[in-house]
């Protein structure tokens, strides 16, 4: 995984709350067996609307999505994270993310940043006033900054370290194989197994 330390880019103001993963990428776009090529499905239903924010020239190169509350609710599809990344987003800012989406994003290196709803409103206003506003998401200092504003955000130390080092979660766990072996030795004998088929 690519390291995430600090990213500076322009913002895309998505003035909607409860953006579920079916909106981020509808089910009919989930049929690929790769991790790439999902950008076409991103917000597919909304992209027919010429007024939709991603269709506006001034936001075309945005890399920081600023969204309303409860972003990423619904389905566990990690394709939602891939679609955002494939399109070019590096970070998403909202006042609240659904758990599974947030987990998926932080596994895959798309930084999800939680700030207060009033701060999201202020960012929308700033971006709309000047779409070229540079937004910096700094994982090292745990701050989001634009113009003269600097907003602290929280993220647990472990996830931050893993993202900044670009570490593979599975590789880390495989170093704990001794613990897994020991655990398996004392598992209850009557726990079900799928094999052999009964």
């Amino acid at each position: 995984m690519e390291k995430f330390i600090k990213h500076t880019g322009t913002g895309v103001p998505l003035r909607r709350s409860n953006v579920d993963t079916d909106q981020i990428i509808p089910a009919v776009y989930l049929k690929r067996v790769t991790r790439s090529g999902f950008e076409d499905g991103l917000f597919a239903a909304w992209r027919n609307d010429p007024d939709f924010v991603l269709n506006k020239a001034e936001y075309k190169n945005g890399t920081v999505l600023v969204a309303g509350a409860d972003f990423g609710t619904g389905s566990s599809r990690e394709h939602a994270v891939w679609a955002l990344q494939n399109y070019g987003f590096k970070a998403v800012i909202s006042s609240r993310f659904a758990d599974i989406f947030r987990g998926n994003s932080l596994k895959g290196g798309l930084l999800t940043v939680i700030v207060a709803e009033a701060d999201v409103e202020a960012m929308w206003a700033a971006i709309e006033a000047d779409p070229a506003t540079a937004i910096t998401v700094d994982l090292d200092t745990r701050t989001v900054s634009y113009n003269a504003v600097s907003l602290p955000f929280t993220i647990d130390d472990y996830t931050r370290w893993r993202l900044m080092e670009g570490l593979d979660d599975i590789g880390l766990t495989l170093k704990q194989t001794d613990f897994i072996d020991t655990f398996e030795d004392k598992r209850r004998s009557y726990k079900p197994a799928t094999l052999p088929i009964r």
């Binding site: 566990s76 599809r77 990690e78 394709h79 994270v81 599974i100 987990g103 998926n104 596994k107 895959g108 647990d156 979660d169 599975i170 880390l172 766990t173 495989l174 704990q176 194989t177 897994i180 398996e184």
Partner: peptide, 20 residues
């Protein structure tokens, strides 16, 4: 509970999941 594809891979490889 539901998990994403990265976690599916994790469980396949290790039968465990780091979880808060």
């Amino acid at each position: 509970f539901g998990i994403g594809t990265s976690e599916v891979e994790h469980v396949l490889a290790t039968q465990t999941l780091p979880s808060t």
